[in-house]
Amino acid sequence: MKQNAELIKYFPLGVRGFWQNVLKEHEKVEEIRIRADKPMMLKGNGKEWYADKQGQWVKEIKEAYSPGFGEIQELVDYWCKDSRYAYQKELKNGFLTISGGHRIGICGETVLDAEGKIQTIKNISSLNIRFARQCRQAGERILPCLYEKNILQNTLILSPPGAGKTTLLRDLVRRVSDGNEFSEGKVVGLVDERGELAASYQGIPQLDIGLRTDVMDGCSKEEGMIRLLRSMGPQVIAVDELGSMKEIKALFKLSGCGCSILATMHGRSLEEMGRKRMLKSLWKEKIFTRVLLLGREEGRFYSRIYKEADLPDWSTSH
């Protein structure tokens, strides 16, 4: 109930009654999708629901409530503290991270600059609200598999969106940083580009990410990794959602510096990863000695861990 009251704070006063009902079973809520003049959708326990006018969860689409464009603007303004100018970078990237680390994906009309790059998004018409949660048991069973001779192995966590890779990474960082039965506490450098992992607010992490964790918040992953390496002397570097060639190149630099790496990436299966050209060099150089695959089947989470010997040789495949 206390957490529910905390979440309600993220909504304007005038609509709190509605959101109180939506978030009544906040632990069930995984994702809330709001589209202008379209039924509001809720995802919970792996199933799709709708919210009615009072915010109650319903199964029937005819009972669903469709928020208007104005209501979306009101929410965005509230999350931006009526200061959209200050959130230009976030709006440009298509998401907002509010205090508490909750992430709101946004879509709308893009404004392009002279070079055709997105300058900002105006007339926001779709929102995807995802609540950050600290799950202190997430990494408990997985942690032993990540160590070999008491050394943390370079680990890549693969999963499709919504399967819990960020939650798992956060818990692993906390356990590695605080120390565990396999190793004493290590200095962890955490690159938190979107402010989801540490949920920093004005530079201070709001979630528990361990005693020895330094957070580089809001900067690009490739730059953050190199800066942390140069300035903070990390023993482990953690980074969420690798996706570009620049980031992969930065990983190569890290791998030769004696740091362990904990990283996540979007992916559905090992085969899919093997087909990505961008990752070929990663497999060839055997940067990651552990690959953890997360997923979800019929609403239940599963995880599979692959050690170096289990990983197929993709360095030559097309």
Partner: peptide, 10 residues
């Protein structure tokens, strides 16, 4: 006079 998307406009 506040809440503009553009910094220069604000």
């Amino acid at each position: 006079f506040v809440g503009y998307e553009e910094e220069s406009m604000q």
